Structures are given as C-alpha cells and as structure tokens.
Computed example of a mutant assay.
Amino acid sequence: MTDDTAVKTAEDQADAGGLRTGRGDVKLGLLEYFDFTPDRPRHEKQRNAMEAALLADDAGYHRIWIPEHHGPNSPSSSPLLLSAALGTRVHRARVGTAVTLLRIRDPYLTAVDVAHAVGQSPAGFDLGIGRGDFGGPGSESVDHLRKNDTQFWGALDLLTSLLDSGSAALEPLELPYERWMHGAGGGSAEIAGKLGFNYCHGLFLNPNLDDCLRQLETYRALRPDVGRTAVAMTVLTSDRSAATVPNVRRQPTVLNASGTIQTCAEAILRVGRMTGVDEIIVAEVSQDPALHQKAVTGLYQAVFGRSE
C-alpha cells in the first residue's frame, strides 16, 4: 500500500486526544530499533533508537515494541534484553518485543528473560511471539536451536507454562503482562484467538489489506470484545522522501506510506478507520536520525491533532 492507495484525507481525524474508528478510540504505538543502514555501527543505531523511544514516551505513544532481526546490519538481535533496558527508562509507554523468535530460542531461558523484562518495565510489558525464523547468511549458526513446527508448538506450550505456573527452577510470573501473536496472513490470527493472545497484523510484511481484514475478522470471531488487535505499518516521513525511498528497500519489509508527516499521519488514520483495530503500531524508517526523531514526535502530534 502506498500513499496513493492508502491515503485520502484526514477529515475523519479524531477530536483532540483520540483517533476514532468504528470501534472507538485507537492508540498509537511505535516499532523502534528498525534501522538497517549498512554503514552505521550497531551501537550508534541502538543509541539513536533509545533516544527516539524516549521521545515517543514523552509524546504519548501507548507502546514501544522492539523487533528481532539477525544479521550484521540489525540493531536488535535480542529484543528481550533491549526491552528490559528501555523499560527502566520510560515513564508511560508499555514496552515489549515484536517479535521474539521462539523457533530459535530456548523456552526456559526465554521465560527467565521475560520475567526479568516484566520486572524492569513498571509501565507494562508485552511479549510478542512470531512463528518466523532466522534465514539468510549466518543462519546456520542457530541450526542447533531451530525447531520444526511440532517442536515450536511444544516450546510455546512450555514457555507459557513456565510463565504461568513456574517450575522447580523458576517462580511463576506474578506481575501482569500482555501476550501478543504476530502474523501476516498465514494463520496466526486464528492461533492467537485459540490461545487467548492479542493479535497484531504486519501490514509491512503483507500489504494486502484484504488479507489483513480477513485475519482480523477471524480473530474477532474467536475473541469477540475481549482480545486486542493492532496493525503494524511502515512509513517514511521526509521532505526528501523521493531521494530516500530506494534506501528503504534494504529493510526486510515493504513500505506502506511515504511523504510528509501529515501525509503519513493521514495514512495511519485511514488504516485505523478501515481495519477498526484498537491500535496502530508505526515504524518510521527515515535513515537520518534527526529526521527520524522529528518524525516520531511529529507523527503523534499530526495523528491526534496536536501542535507543540
């Protein structure tokens, strides 16, 4: 979906303080640590991402999620660790993973890390699970951890059991947190509904809006008026967007909207209205850190009709 197809106008924009859809007020979240610029050091990407996340917390974003990507250009190979660090510094926003790749992770050690992250995140923590894998160069490094589908479901059962009931080596997690299943049209919505998870649809992985609507309908039929829903989308907000769009193709995603901050805010509003989700999670992918940080604050203000 581009701004040509996703955006019309912001005439249905919320009253100040709320983005309205047919399902009520919609919250805005941020997917951060999404800089895959090849020539920028990892520690610099992580520092920039932390600064942007703190700006998002100040602005009023409801959630800040961190993805799991592996490879030399990724700033977020360990989202639970990064989420715990972020959780100690935010004041209002929930933090969490989007996603934790349980297919290549040990369920016991993941439960330990989740317990630590929840304890470090007084504003709230979200555990996001994805069914994906680590592919491409270097993926053979985790062959000894990789699980087939049957093993994946066994690991998920063990993880949730450890968090709920504990074991001889791990106390049950008593602090509240949220569980999310992430997907893009491959059946994760149905799985989330049956397991009692919330569901987030990755429009930046599959930009087909009809697929998104079908998955949301499936989920809502299983968890009517109970489970929360979200759509995650990528935007590029820059006055120089025409020159920087080709660079976004280096990201492991597709671009859902580009243009000015106002144009991208209208795209966010339109996706919210069309899907009726509870939340929109936005990944802003400007490569210039200053432009990105400006966009993080500007998007929130534009979506909710606020000015500095």
Rank of each mutant, 00 (worst) to 15 (best):
M1D: 03
D3R: 14
T5P: 11
T5E: 14
V7A: 12
K8R: 10
T9L: 13
D12F: 11
D12H: 15
G17C: 07
T21I: 14
T21H: 10
G22V: 10
G24A: 05
G29S: 12
L30M: 01
F34R: 00
T37L: 10
T37I: 04
T37M: 03
P41R: 12
H43K: 13
K45M: 00
Q46C: 01
Q46R: 02
N48L: 05
N48Y: 10
E51W: 04
A53Q: 01
D57C: 01
D57R: 04
D58V: 08
A59H: 04
I64P: 00
E68K: 10
E68V: 15
G71S: 05
P72L: 03
N73G: 04
S74N: 02
S78M: 13
S78A: 11
P79N: 06
S83K: 08
G87Y: 13
G87V: 15
G87R: 07
T88D: 07
R89L: 02
V90M: 02
H91D: 09
G96V: 02
T97G: 07
T97F: 03
L101A: 06
L101V: 05
R105Y: 04
D106A: 01
D106K: 08
P107G: 00
L109M: 01
T110F: 01
T110V: 00
H116F: 06
A117P: 04
S121C: 02
P122V: 10
A123Q: 02
G124S: 08
G124Q: 06
D126V: 08
I129T: 03
G135K: 10
P137C: 00
S141V: 11
N148K: 04
T150M: 07
L156S: 11
L163Q: 05
L163H: 06
S165Q: 11
S167Q: 03
A169N: 12
A169T: 08
E171M: 04
L173T: 09
L175E: 13
E178F: 07
A184E: 03
G185Q: 09
G185K: 12
G186V: 13
G186C: 15
S188G: 08
G196N: 15
F197E: 00
F197P: 01
C200I: 09
L203Q: 04
F204M: 15
L205R: 07
L205M: 08
L205E: 05
N208F: 12
N208D: 08
L209F: 03
D211K: 09
C212P: 05
L216Q: 10
L216F: 04
L216T: 11
Y219C: 01
R220C: 01
L222R: 09
P224Y: 05
T234C: 14
L236Y: 11
T237P: 03
S238W: 14
D239C: 07
R240C: 07
S241P: 03
S241V: 10
T244H: 09
V245I: 03
P246Y: 05
N247H: 09
R249C: 03
R249E: 02
R250E: 01
R250Q: 09
Q251K: 12
T253M: 13
A257W: 14
C264L: 15
I268H: 11
R270Y: 12
G272Y: 06
R273H: 11
R273F: 07
M274W: 06
T275D: 03
T275P: 15
G276E: 14
V277H: 06
I280G: 15
V282K: 06
E284D: 00
S286F: 13
P289E: 04
P289M: 08
V296S: 00
V296D: 00
T297R: 07
G305L: 12
R306V: 06
